[in-house]
């Protein structure tokens, strides 16, 4: 008897909670965002999310999802509504999926003619990527001019894992499509690229080497907080050139040393990208208007990066601090 009493109690409590639930307010303005897997991208995304949530009244679900082609497909399929700060020369899906012009500061910076399953607007951040060596290494070896001299010094870059080859602390995440090893091989650089899984792991490795004064070759991009504490020099990879056969459909036919990936990266007008179907819903018009106007600047991101990377603030705290200290973002509101 008593047992059934408690069973009923429990059932009734659940029932009553559902009653309250149905009376609760359901939020129609709801979006799903993918959180980027590097600090700069996280900041850009958090800026967008903070404005959408605090100023425009959305609830944004933030999903941890590795960036790469998989993310583009997830957005095209409608599983995720938007993602932030994609770098065009890394993205392989943008040519296939975007069908619109990328506009930065009133000028068309890139034209796309894909199938239109994803829409993209510039975020304001302009990225540059290269391979870097510490400045003390260049000072000690004045003969070292650029990437073509790397082989001469490969012994200094070697580690027990790479044996006689030098080591590149490469692009940490597979989905970023950096093609590090391919680039090294094409350019005839006798180095091995090691992929450490996360940005933080790669930087921890680099910071350790820097503190010990060792020679190391590091893939990195600007803006990044690593440059704040450590003096680094780019190896000036060959200028970016597009290779139209280097795609999955063509089974990754490279263009030899003539073009990507035997070159450095393009100057990247980064973009926020989203599902057009979801964004065309009337309740999301404000969000689209915001994305069209958003122009987050490199200087702001660089400052926030230092707050996160060196001062130990969380991404949310850094964005809140920035949002309270400036009115810049008010111009992006619809």
């Amino acid at each position: 008897m008593k047992n059934s009493l408690f069973a009923k109690t429990f059932a009734a409590l659940i029932l009553s909670s559902f009653l309250v639930l149905s009376a609760g307010t359901a939020n129609a303005k709801r979006l799903t965002a993918a959180v980027a897997d590097w600090t700069g991208g996280e900041l850009t995304c958090q800026v967008a999310v903070a404005i959408l949530e605090e100023e425009l009244g959305y609830r944004v679900d933030r999903i941890e999802f590795a960036s790469g082609t998989g993310l583009w497909e997830a957005i095209a399929a409608g599983d995720i509504d938007f993602a932030c700060e994609s770098w065009p020369s890394y993205a392989e899906a943008d040519d296939v999926m975007v069908n619109m012009n990328l506009v930065y500061d009133g000028e068309v910076v890139k034209e796309y003619s894909g199938d239109g399953s994803v829409d993209a607007y510039t975020s304001g951040i302009i990225g540059m990527s290269d391979y870097y060596v510490p400045k003390y290494f260049v000072d000690a070896n004045p003969d070292f001019k650029d990437w073509s001299d790397l082989n001469k010094y490969k012994d200094q870059f070697a580690t027990p894992e790479t044996g006689s080859k030098g080591r590149l602390i490469g692009c940490p995440v597979a989905g970023w499509n950096c093609h590090d090893q391919k680039r090294l091989d094409l350019l005839g650089i006798d180095f091995e690229a090691s992929e450490l899984g996360t940005e933080v792991a790669a930087l921890a490795e680099a910071q350790g080497a820097y503190d010990r004064g060792e020679a190391f070759l590091l893939y990195l991009w600007e803006p990044h907080f690593f440059f704040g504490k450590n003096e680094m020099v780019g190896v000036k990879l060959p200028a970016y050139k597009y290779c139209d056969s280097f795609t999955e459909a063509n089974n990754w036919q490279d263009c030899g040393t003539a073009a990507w990936p035997a070159t450095g990266w393009d100057k990247d007008y980064t973009m926020n990208y989203m599902n057009p179907e979801v964004m065309s819903k009337p309740e999301n018009a404000e969000a689209v208007a915001f994305f069209k106007k958003m122009a987050f600047s490199n200087t702001d991101q660089a400052k926030m990066l230092v707050r996160v990377g060196d001062d130990g603030l969380s991404v949310e705290e850094a964005v809140a601090e920035w949002k309270n200290s400036t009115d810049e973002w008010k111009a992006w509101l619809p």
Binding site: A66, S67, G68, G70, W72, V173, G197
Partner: peptide, 20 residues
């Protein structure tokens, strides 16, 4: 384990997912 540097089939799963 690939999350902290493990190799092998697990890493293949991750790479496959990342490249869709």
């Amino acid at each position: 384990t690939p999350l902290i540097g493990g190799k092998g089939l697990g890493l293949e799963v991750f790479n496959g997912l990342a490249r869709s």
